[in-house]
Simulated scan of single mutants.
Amino acid sequence: MNHLITLALCVFAFQTKAQTFKNPDSLFNPTPYGSSHASSVKTSGELVYISGQSGGLGKDHILSTSFREQVQVAIKNLTTILNSYQLKPENVMKITILIVDHSSEKLKIWEEEISKTWKNKPFPTSTLIPVPRLALDNMLIEVDAVAFKAN
């Protein structure tokens, strides 16, 4: 029995030291909604999991009515989190994009704006999911990501 308790404590200690969660002070506080902006798990490198970033600006999460402006802010918010890990967009391996009432016009705007950030292609892998609504009223886009930081 003592061996099982010791093993459980070792596993718990490993998990808590290997995992980190970040909520940069300049971004909206997501903790009341049961999430963090980003989490990472150390491997031979570090995987960084970034929660869906909306087009909400700053701590007050101000949402423009412009889809383009929300895309720009969502990418800026994603970049803020990457910077908190000393990462760049090139470190992103996978993104998921949720767009309210998706259309070819909105896809064109996404492509134009993402190309400004990912200047050094290739782009990360991605999934675009059209949705009828997001978590908060007036949110038009949400982008999550997984990034990798080599040791």
Rank of each mutant, 00 (worst) to 15 (best):
V48K: 00
N151T: 05
Q53Y: 04
S84P: 12
T117F: 05
P124F: 04
P122N: 07
A18R: 13
Q53E: 15
S44H: 11
K119T: 15
D137S: 15
D137R: 15
R133Q: 15
D60F: 12
N23W: 07
L4D: 04
H37A: 05
L82E: 04
V146D: 00
I141A: 03
S51L: 02
A8Q: 07
N23K: 05
L57S: 13
N91D: 14
L107E: 09
I81G: 01
D101V: 10
T96Y: 08
S64N: 12
L136G: 08
I99Y: 06
K17D: 02
T65F: 11
K88I: 03
N151E: 10
S39V: 07
F123G: 02
I97W: 02
Y33N: 08
K108Y: 10
Q72I: 09
I95G: 00
Y33C: 07
S40T: 13
T20M: 09
P130L: 12
S66Y: 09
G34K: 06
Q53K: 08
I109G: 01
I99T: 14
F28N: 04
I109M: 07
I99W: 06
N83H: 14
T125F: 07
Q70R: 09
L98G: 01
F12R: 02
H102W: 09
T65W: 08
A145S: 04
Q15D: 14
